[in-house]
Amino acid sequence: MYYVKVTLGVVLGVFVFLFLDYALPSKDTVRITNTYNRLTEIGRNAIFYASDDTGTVQNASGQRDIRFIETVRPSEKVFVYRNEDTGLIWPPYFKYDSSNLHAEATNLRSDSRDPIWVSITSYGWRIPLFSIYPNAISVKQVAGPSDAPLNWPAMLILILLGVLLFLLWRMWNQFRERTIDPAAKRMGAAVDRADARADAAMDRVSGEFTEAREGFTGWLNTWKGKPRK
């Protein structure tokens, strides 16, 4: 049972970590090299794209016209973002300005000779094998490639989650101390009393059986010494 609990705890921890890593906002300092629209096929990876109720329309072939932002990081590694509205359901970024964001990103395009560095806030993962892109939320110009704005939204969310988990832990401990532990003690005491009564009953039965056996043996012994007629 111990190993089952440990395994379940590890699986739950990994799931929570992946969920937070995907959903929480992240900030990257990059240089925008290109912005464009592309018909993108949405298939098994649809969970990593915006839902249909955000205004994005798919054609009969399952293709969607999606805006993309191509960037280069200070390490010269390229990175691509998608630019879609999120709607009101999930994730709760309430983004409806993808057109404005596309215009801002286009206005901040630059090359390596005269770079313009920006900080892009986004959520999600970049997995090239499955054509998965993080969704850009906002773009803001920064002073240079070493300028990394503080990711205070993610920090605030993590702090609130930590406080919530602490409160839930305290409530569970109080509930356990006031309800579960006393009930468990009463149940244990009842089981102990039942065991004691069962042991006492077994002792009485064993004693009565012993007395009956001794009485029967004594009665048999009275017949051993009698002479025959």
Rank of each mutant, 00 (worst) to 15 (best):
F175P: 00
R113H: 12
S122H: 10
R126S: 07
Y3W: 15
D195T: 09
T56C: 02
A184W: 06
R44M: 01
R213H: 08
S99C: 00
R67C: 01
S26V: 12
K226P: 02
A194P: 01
A60C: 04
V30W: 00
A194T: 12
I159E: 01
A212R: 14
G225M: 07
A154T: 14
S206M: 06
A212C: 08
D52T: 15
K229T: 06
N135A: 02
L150V: 15
V191R: 14
T222F: 08
I66H: 00
V118G: 03
D21V: 12
L39W: 12
T56V: 09
A148P: 00
T210C: 06
N173M: 07
L160R: 00
K224D: 06
R228C: 00
G207S: 12
T179V: 15
W117C: 07
D203A: 12
A184T: 13
A184H: 12
I89M: 05
K226L: 14
D147R: 08
M202E: 14
F94H: 08
L160W: 11
R228D: 03
W219T: 07
G144H: 07
R44N: 12
R170A: 11
R44K: 10
S99R: 05
H102Y: 10
G144E: 01
Q58H: 07
V191L: 15
M171H: 09
F19A: 10
A198K: 15
E211Y: 05
Q58V: 02
E208Y: 11
K77W: 06
E177C: 05
P91L: 02
A184I: 13
K5I: 11
A46C: 10
S51V: 10
D53H: 07
I32E: 02
R38Q: 15
L167P: 03
N34W: 01
E214K: 12
F209H: 12
V30Y: 04
W125D: 03
I132M: 06
L158E: 13
L20I: 09
E208L: 13
T7F: 13
N107H: 12
V80C: 00
T217C: 00
